[in-house]
């Protein structure tokens, strides 16, 4: 079996699978990592994996709606960054460190 992949064999399904893998890495990271900043980066990774999937489908379906959707995602992600970092900074000011395990005032 020839393991060398030539450029022509990379098709839509490869991008789709890459998107799925990136999304899974992001989701797993969010659930496993405890640092608020890293959790935040994982959300960004998930959103960008979705962007990749959108573009892949747009190319495969020959439809521009998927590419347009990416712009909406980008803007939403930017807004989320602004708000998310503001909340993290506000918490960071009160205590030294942004580890999720320390944020446990409420339980039950």
């Amino acid at each position: 079996m020839n393991l060398a992949i030539s450029a022509t064999t990379i098709g839509a399904q490869h991008y789709f699978i890459l998107g799925a893998i990136l999304f899974t890495i992001g989701a797993t990271g969010l659930l496993l990592r405890r640092n608020a900043i890293v959790m935040f980066m994982c959300v960004e990774l998930m959103l960008n994996a979705v962007n990749l999937t959108f573009v892949t489908f747009a190319k495969a379906l020959n439809d521009s709606a998927g590419q347009a959707a990416v712009f909406f995602t980008l803007i939403v992600a930017a807004a989320e960054v602004a708000v998310g970092l503001a909340i993290i900074v506000a918490i960071f000011r009160r205590r030294q460190g942004a580890t999720a395990d320390d944020i446990d005032l409420m339980k039950g």
Partner: peptide, 11 residues
């Protein structure tokens, strides 16, 4: 997190 999952569902 849930928004990202929802968005992947849309895709």
């Amino acid at each position: 997190f849930s928004s990202a999952i929802f968005l992947y569902g849309i895709a």
